[in-house]
Amino acid sequence: MQLRLTVNGTEHALDLSDPRVTLLDLLRYRLGLTGTKKGCDHGQCGACTVLVNGRRMNSCLSLAAMHEGDEVTTVEGIGTPDNLAPMQEAFVRHDGFQCGYCTPGQIVSATAMLKELAAGWPSQVSGDLDAVALSDDEIRERMSGNLCRCAAYPNIVEAIREVAEQEGPA
C-alpha cells in the first residue's frame, strides 16, 4: 500500500508492503531515523515518543499505515548537535540523562508536555482542574510516561522547569 507522511518536515511517499509495520519500526528500520528508541514495544516505557501533528504519542503503539498524511516530528526534528533546541540544551546542562536511551523520548515528551501545560490541561496531581500551575509535581506526573532506569528524573525535572520558566508562565 502507498503511504505518504511528513517526517521532520520531509515528505515521504512510501510503498508499505506490510501493514504490520509500526510507526516506530518505520522510523527506525525503514527511514533510518534511529533517534526514536524501542524500549518495550508495548507503550510501557515512553522511549518511542514522537509528535504526530504536534501531539506526543508512543510510536510503538501505532501502525505506520494509520498515519497517512500525518506530520511526524522525532527527536531529530527537535534539534541537531550543532543547533540544540532549548530543551536539549537544558538536558545537557542539567545532566538529564545518563545512558541516553530514554532521552529522545524524554525530550520529545517534555517539549509537547509544556504545550499541554500551557493549554491548561489538568493532570492527576492538579489540585484544581481549572487552575493548573507549573510545579515540580506537575512535571513529574506529566513525565511519568517516560521511564528512565538510570533515573535521571530529578535532573530531568530541573531541566524542564528551567525551560518552562524561560518560556514564560504556563
Binding site: 507503550g43 515512553g46 504519542m57 508512543n58 501505532s62 515528551s109 489538568p122 493532570s123 510516561g145
Partner: peptide, 25 residues
Amino acid sequence: EAVRRDWPLLSRAILAGASGQIRNR
C-alpha cells in the same frame, strides 16, 4: 472545560490512567 467543571469525576478518572502519550491517542 465542561467535563472538568460538571463531571470532574470523569476527568479525574481519565487522568489517573496510563500516561500523557497514551491518553493522547
